[in-house]
Design a binder for these strands. Structure first.
Ligand SMILES: [Mn+2]
Ligand SMILES: [Mn+2]
Ligand SMILES: [Mn+2]
Ligand SMILES: [Mn+2]
Lengths: 227, 227
DNA sequence: TAAAAAAGTTAGCCATGACTAACAAATTAA
DNA sequence: TTAATTTGTTAGTCATGGCTAACTTTTTTA
């Protein structure tokens, strides 16, 4: 009997650090993730991350050399994936059953993802009939820990004339999500890049019957599939 | 604008202490609740409760004199009632929608009750169509904080020959709840007290087509309405 | 390649919420 | 009504996870 079912005894903080590291490493597909980068992402001081990384290393969830880049062990990754699964399933539940809007789900899911119960999350999954994507278009890892990392193409990376479809959005900022909805963009929207302005990288896009100019920062948080 | 909607900034611990105190004061209807009693209930040391009570007093949730009995302010009670509402709504959700059994819901609800979001709990309430009772038969406080405290009659308090109906059970012990189910008792079961044995207070009861002898401790945790 | 900047580390501090051990007050029993 | 017991309080310790300030190492830039 392996310790498959150890109701992992990680604290909320430890879990958040592992998830953050996973997101920087895998989702943002970085070459190197450093201590200060992690600190900035988590909005804590570099001293705090340094401290926590030390602890996670002794627990064999993280590997790194002094002054070197941070990496996750398989076990560390698995924990992160489970958290992401929980986060996205809860977001889906809030959105589809409890009348939460796009921009409201993330904050509450950030809490709910730390509830410890395998049954809870697998039953929630079943209750919703095993959804594939969360309200922001992100793939939901399966109960077996299967997680496809889809390389993300940002709207900002496209050239003039490109036509694409909105696949997912970054869910971290309430204001950003509200703005996306306000201008009429949604998952699956078809977008045409009309113009890329060199001096400030803002882009002019067409979708539905609207034409809007959006900033580079905005376009960095919109992920698309080129058609 | 009052601070009605202050997403109360209490820690999980502070919340658990207030809820425990409320349960001892109101639900168990005690004349006096003391520091050690609270400590025992929460399974922490008297030093810990003493410490926490001090803090809750400075925040005006608790009132007490040195060496005196513990009491809750209106604000303290209101927080406790909100927690009980959340706890029971979650138990109901787990039981009715996620295939949790009677004895599994409490532990997970103990975590879920600390999720901070008014919308979450009110929408969950609506989603379930405003249930009145949780799976253990306990009344669920309303979103307005209305909470009827029904004086509890324990099965152990009945005399020989009494006929009653099972209204609710104490949900704190998994083993107890499992045993209740195993012998075939459930909410609304009609029970007849056949015999009360003086020397050990065990009682012989009849229900459905069964006859069982149960201990005083068991009967203390079964709440009934006399018919 | 040396100086400056950035990144990472360490020491030391704080708040929270546990604990034990020692002590004080209140209650109960002899 | 004194003595024993129970109840409550205080002091001091620990782990967790934050922080700032100072320092070291690495990387970049001049
Ligand atoms: Mn999210
Ligand atoms: Mn989180
Ligand atoms: Mn319960
Ligand atoms: Mn709790």
């Amino acid at each position: 009997m392996t310790n498959k079912l150890n109701l992992n005894n990680l604290t909320k903080s430890e879990e958040d650090y592992l998830k953050a590291l996973f997101q920087l490493l895998v989702e943002d597909n970085s070459v190197k993730v450093g201590n200060n980068q992690l600190a900035e992402y988590l909005k804590v001081s570099p001293a705090s991350t340094n401290n926590m990384i030390k602890k996670l290393k002794t627990k064999n969830y993280v590997v790194s050399e002094k002054y070197g880049k941070l990496e996750l062990t398989d076990e560390g990754s698995a924990i992160a994936v489970r958290l992401i699964r929980k986060h996205r399933l809860w977001e889906t539940f809030l959105y589809n059953y409890l009348n939460f809007s796009w921009d409201e789900v993330h904050e509450v899911a950030e809490q709910l993802e730390h509830i410890k119960s395998y049954k809870l999350i697998d039953e929630l999954d079943r209750f919703m009939d095993f959804p594939e994507k969360d309200p922001h278009g992100e793939l939901i890892p399966t109960s077996k820990g299967e997680y496809k990392v889809v390389p993300k193409i940002t709207l900002s990376s496209l050239e003039e004339g490109a036509i694409c479809q909105l696949i997912s959005v970054n869910d971290g900022s309430v204001n950003f999500l509200r703005f996306v909805s306000e201008i009429g963009l949604a998952l699956s929207s078809e977008i045409k890049v009309l113009e890329v302005r060199e001096f400030d990288k803002s882009i002019r896009i067409q979708f539905n019957d609207s034409i809007e100019t959006v900033t580079r920062k905005f376009a960095d948080n919109v992920f698309v599939k080129v058609l």
